[in-house]
Design a protein around this nucleic acid. Structure first.
Lengths: 151, 151
DNA sequence: CTCGATCATATTGCGCACAATAAGATTTCC
DNA sequence: GGAAATCTTATTGTGCGCAATATGATCGAG
């Protein structure tokens, strides 16, 4: 048995966040897999759709809290699938501008039913979702502040 | 701009869970890295300490919601570090029993300060943590139920 | 007792995450 | 205007996560 109550408690505090995140990813997997998308790829498309294109890799990384080591190969796979284009910014050749192609844009209509399907499958009420989201936003903001990330 | 409000909303519902989980892992990283541990390895040790040893790989996987493809190499690394031992169950040679070594057990005292340090660093109140944990437990239970996992 | 089904773990392959580093481009400072 | 700092992306290496598959052990029906 654990000799320190804090460690026991940590398993009950931090593990649920870790496990719930993976569980939600698994809930999306079959719906996204039907379109040959992974969950991070889906979130990347959501970020592109919800922002102003074209978006640099760095801007995408700020939105998704992902670095180039994750985004570069992910974006190359989306590019290989014909869903996005990657072009050097002629005005600043350090930057790579990411745009959604027509085929990628067409996915919006095919994926529109996905969030509702997951929410229904999980079976939580709207108030529960909102309360959870509020807590997560607080945590994310708190950790970002501790890391020194701008909001 | 996104043509479907549901997709816009999904970025505000599911992304925070994904981002908060990774952010909390990053918050633990420096504290655990001082002992050459990763966050999943730390959770594995917590699960072993909080249960009755020895524990089979399958039991560990049930607790952590991880499969053998993840646990086997992770446990081999913990074994290589001298923190756990892996032995075939003589009574059922299909099973591998995992035990914490004396060196692994000694880590309990060295890690006892970690949960408090992270909570302090993140700077959220106890009520916020409990509310968040409640929401995560609900989500985890809901997804488990949807997957057909026993509680 | 034995053959087939089931169970437990291991292996393989792919896609993240992220630290560390590298390679160019741009800005800044003199 | 040119060297040095800074910025942006890409590359490399390690460790997850998980699906699919393989391998060997156990159990059960007949």
């Amino acid at each position: 048995m654990a000799r320190h109550a804090q460690l026991e408690l940590d398993l009950q505090l931090c593990f649920p966040l870790y496990a719930a995140s993976r569980a939600l990813t698994r809930a999306y997997a079959p719906l996204l897999g039907a379109h040959d998308l992974t969950y991070p790829q889906y979130l990347t498309l959501l970020a592109l759709w919800s922002g102003s294109e074209p978006m640099s890799v760095g801007d995408l990384g700020d939105r998704l809290r992902l670095d180039s080591g994750t985004l570069t190969p992910l974006l190359k796979r989306l590019e290989a699938a014909g869903l996005v284009s990657r072009l050097r910014d002629p005005a600043d050749e350090r930057r790579v501008l990411v745009s959604v192609t027509a085929a990628g844009d067409a996915l919006q209509d095919e994926l529109a039913h996905v969030p509702g399907a997951v929410i229904e499958r999980v079976g939580m009420g709207a108030e529960e979702w909102m309360a959870l989201r509020h807590g997560l936003d607080r945590l994310l903001a708190a950790v970002d502040a501790a890391e020194g990330v701008a909001p």
